[in-house]
Design a protein around this nucleic acid. Structure first.
Lengths: 205, 205
DNA sequence: TGACAATGTTACCGATCGGTACGTATACAT
DNA sequence: ATGTATACGTACCGATCGGTAACATTGTCA
């Protein structure tokens, strides 16, 4: 991702206390609304209204609504890998424990009453057209997830690391979706246990 | 689902050869467009244009766009269980083979170049609001799927049938989503193999 | 103080959104 | 032939969509 002219890079450009606080407020509000109610469902008018600013402020910081959505997803991406890396860092050198920690966390998140699934997954569903700014970010996130899972499956000594890594990804995506579909007590609650069973069955004997 | 005032029940009401064919064309076109590009992404104008009819024709057969979307999903639901029951009927009395057959089929479907995921899942993502006509149909479909999978898991002698059933559901939903995210060669291709591993690890020893 | 750049505001654009009032065409029964 | 019911089309509605032109305000420099 070589070109990135978005707000997250220009938010404090020099002057110590010159505040483009509007851009931050806009992104914060857009993040919340896009995640909770969907990107297509939210109009720019509602975003600027809730952010307490006006439309031109939005369009001076973001070239378009689609790019604002992409910025939201880039923010989501950062926080996503933060959570992932926390689980990894908690169990150095033990990929199986890392996965277990991450999936336990995912399982818990999916049981929260306001859980709305994975922002990345949802965006890809909302924008099937290849090349859409939001979808590009989403696809990159998922490719990275697949890559990491396959590597961890190899590190934990799976017979077929690619299959196990992909199996874990299927369980994770299933948890994201069924978390928002079934709510509390849904199948997503069992993602960690099922992943553990799958891992156990996939290791070299 | 006791009340159902929609077109599928009134499409041939008496006169042998004088049905409102407009309604069928509308539903067919809506099915295709809603599935391929998303419900929110498609306006009623495009539907009637592609169907070769006019807007009042649509609103005479369907009370609203939301209800048209619900009708599309009811149609999707019927075809869904048709496919499911075919896999079941192919292996009478052998739930494990039934699941295997269904998941092999799902895996193949997800690898088709124009695959766009599960219409039910996608609709639930597009409409997070509880009670939305489209979401109601989608949730019912998923509840039924969960129920059937848990029953089949019990029938095949799982140690913890509910956990295995839910695990299979997670894999299936993961396949639906990653099928449209990764396309050909994505993780969804391995859904049947991973399900088999999970089943093997979940049976009573 | 004056100049400049950045940010904010008012008011508006054409296009499209879901939905409808109302007139027309066709078929059948009387 | 003429009523009656049904299906379909023309033309339109207000609201909202994403986006912008022109102007006012602000803070930071010299």
């Amino acid at each position: 991702m070589p070109t990135d002219k978005n707000i997250e890079l220009t938010i404090n450009h020099g002057h110590a206390a010159s505040p483009p606080k509007a851009a931050k407020k806009i992104l914060d509000v857009a993040y919340d609304l896009f995640y909770r109610r969907g990107i297509r469902a939210i109009g720019v008018d509602e975003i600027v209204k809730r952010a307490g600013v006006t439309k031109p402020s939005l369009y001076r910081s973001f070239p378009s609504k689609d790019e604002l959505a992409a910025s939201y997803l880039r923010q989501y991406d950062r926080e996503y890998w933060e959570r992932f890396d926390e689980a990894v860092a908690a169990h150095p050198g033990d990929p199986r424990a890392q996965i277990s920690a991450f999936l336990t966390r995912v399982g818990k998140r999916t049981q929260r009453p306001d859980y709305r699934g994975c922002g990345m997954t949802n965006a890809a569903v909302e924008y099937p057209e290849h090349g859409h700014p939001a979808r590009v970010v989403s696809e990159a996130n998922k490719q990275e997830l697949r890559h990491r899972l396959r590597e961890m499956a190899a590190a934990m000594g799976a017979q077929d690391p690619d299959t196990l890594g992909d199996g874990l990804l299927l369980l994770i995506e299933g948890a994201y979706i069924s978390g928002q579909l079934f709510g509390l007590g849904g199948p997503a609650a069992s993602v960690a246990r099922n992943a553990d069973l799958l891992i156990e069955a996939s290791l070299k004997k």
